[in-house]
Amino acid sequence: MADLKYFKPEVTVKATIELDEGDLAALDALAGYGTDAFLKVFYERLGEAYLKPHEKSLRKIFSEIRRVAPVAIKKAEEARAQLKKASDELAGRAALA
């Protein structure tokens, strides 16, 4: 029979959340306060009982949001500007025709 004293079961959960630009901007604004500042106010106003056990994960999430969100938002703005430029050029050509 197998020796199970070294057996360590593990469950891994991963979830994918799809966010639109407005959702991402809202998260960026929330994380933009800084994790420590956010937690200070949260704990002062709402207490530590609920969020304290998840603080490490919240710090990880806020860090990832601050890393990813500004880049994604900037790329969306750049794409929008390029589309507008191309649209304006097409409209100008159509007016000349």
Rank of each mutant, 00 (worst) to 15 (best):
M1G: 15
M1K: 12
A2H: 09
A2E: 10
A2R: 11
L4W: 06
L4A: 04
L4S: 06
L4G: 00
K5A: 08
K5D: 11
Y6P: 02
Y6K: 08
F7T: 07
P9Y: 07
P9I: 11
P9Q: 13
V11R: 09
V11I: 12
V11T: 13
K14I: 06
K14R: 12
K14D: 01
A15L: 11
I17N: 01
I17M: 11
E18D: 09
E18Q: 11
L19P: 01
L19T: 05
L19K: 08
L19Y: 10
D20K: 07
D20L: 08
D20Y: 08
D20M: 07
L24F: 02
L24I: 13
A25N: 08
A25Y: 05
A25V: 09
A26Y: 11
A26R: 12
D28P: 01
A29R: 15
L30E: 12
L30Y: 11
L30R: 12
G32K: 02
Y33I: 10
G34N: 02
G34P: 00
T35W: 01
T35D: 09
D36Q: 09
D36A: 12
D36Y: 04
D36H: 03
A37I: 02
F38Y: 15
F38E: 02
F38C: 06
L39R: 04
V41R: 11
L46Y: 13
L46I: 07
L46C: 13
L46Q: 10
G47M: 01
E48M: 10
A49N: 08
A49H: 06
Y50S: 09
P53Q: 00
P53I: 02
H54F: 13
H54Y: 14
H54W: 08
E55C: 06
E55M: 07
K56T: 09
K56W: 01
S57N: 13
S57Y: 10
S57C: 04
L58C: 06
K60C: 03
K60L: 12
K60D: 09
I61E: 15
I61R: 12
I61Q: 13
F62A: 03
E64Q: 15
E64R: 15
I65F: 05
R67Y: 09
R67V: 08
V68E: 14
A69C: 07
P70M: 03
P70F: 00
V71Y: 09
V71K: 15
V71W: 06
A72Y: 07
A72H: 08
A72Q: 15
A72L: 15
K74S: 14
K74V: 06
K74N: 14
K74Q: 15
A76C: 00
A76R: 09
A76K: 07
A76M: 05
A76H: 05
E77N: 10
E78F: 03
E78G: 02
E78V: 11
E78W: 01
A79P: 03
A79T: 14
A79H: 12
A79Q: 14
A81G: 04
Q82Y: 10
L83W: 06
L83T: 06
L83I: 05
L83D: 14
K84W: 02
K84V: 14
D88Q: 10
L90I: 03
A91T: 01
A91G: 01
A91P: 00
G92F: 05
G92N: 15
R93S: 03
A94V: 07
A94C: 02
A94Y: 05
A94S: 09
A95R: 10
A95T: 07
L96F: 06
